[in-house]
Design a protein around this nucleic acid. Structure first.
Lengths: 143, 143
DNA sequence: TCTATAATTGATACAAAGTATCATTTATAA
DNA sequence: TTATAAATGATACTTTGTATCAATTATAGA
């Protein structure tokens, strides 16, 4: 998984440094939706000497390359999600904040239409559904 | 436009204060995608004495009510978008950062499917396409 | 393999964004 | 008109993100 990311980096002329390797590994192994500082913490459990700046910069780079994307999840900090194959989809419970990812999406024709209409070359997308999960709904009903 | 928002606030038991009125007006009249501090600045051109905290709190409230949503747009600050009818769709140029909004979307069946599958009661969604706009593409081609 | 070079790093310091608190003010219901 | 709880805004603070720069390191080419 992280090998894929690594390969893209080198293919695009970026260097595969020790720090980046650790960061990519951590990203692909840990659950997603981490903030930059949460990721820094996890990265440091593997390799103490990696600086916060490097994590921030690596995330920026991955975003520039379209491989990740920052999203909001309530708090002030950006949470980063992987854009596998260029897209990412999730459900967010507006009650408890739980995030559920899902894969399938039916946006291929929309892709095309939008691309043609606005002259964009579309590379990916993020789709977020907001709603109330089962648990939160039954809690609300109980009140 | 801002009347709609105001009506929802009062209907849900929130008070329609002078500060909120100004903030709602500013939000609906100005272009969207403002950060909290940008909005504060604009609000203060209409009514000097409104505090930054009030703007932050009002945005939080509107997000809680599902009327707005913070999104990222490159910089560190959250940009807030209105969720008209519960959804919002835009294209972001990864070259120049330009944002184009569009209305139509074909997610009604997806809505249903997801709702059933995960037990969510879906209330809205955000759809972001990423790509390269015409201008940036021709620039890239020229190099 | 070794070396030159430019990319990358991490420490530091800083700026910007967001949050907590609390006395004061104000919209609303009765 | 008044009592009351909601909302405000000033202040101080924490967290998140950015700029800078000397030191380090991955890579291409000898």
């Amino acid at each position: 998984m992280s090998d894929d990311l690594a390969r893209i980096l080198t293919a695009r002329g970026y260097r595969l440094t020790a720090a980046r390797r650790v960061i990519l590994d951590t990203l692909s192994e840990s659950g997603e939706h981490l903030t930059a500082d949460e990721l820094t913490e996890q990265v440091r459990q593997r390799s103490t000497a990696i600086g916060r700046m490097t994590v921030y910069r690596t995330l920026d780079l991955l975003c520039d390359l379209g491989l990740m994307r920052p999203v909001y999840q309530g708090t002030g900090a950006a949470h980063y999600v992987l854009m596998r194959d260029g897209h990412h989809h999730h459900l967010i419970c507006t009650g408890c904040g739980r995030v559920v990812e899902f894969d399938e999406c039916a946006l291929d024709e929309a892709h095309e239409k939008i691309a043609r209409r606005f002259g964009f070359e579309v590379e990916g997308h993020l789709l977020e559904f907001y709603g109330v999960c089962e648990v939160c709904r039954s809690k609300a009903a109980a009140n």
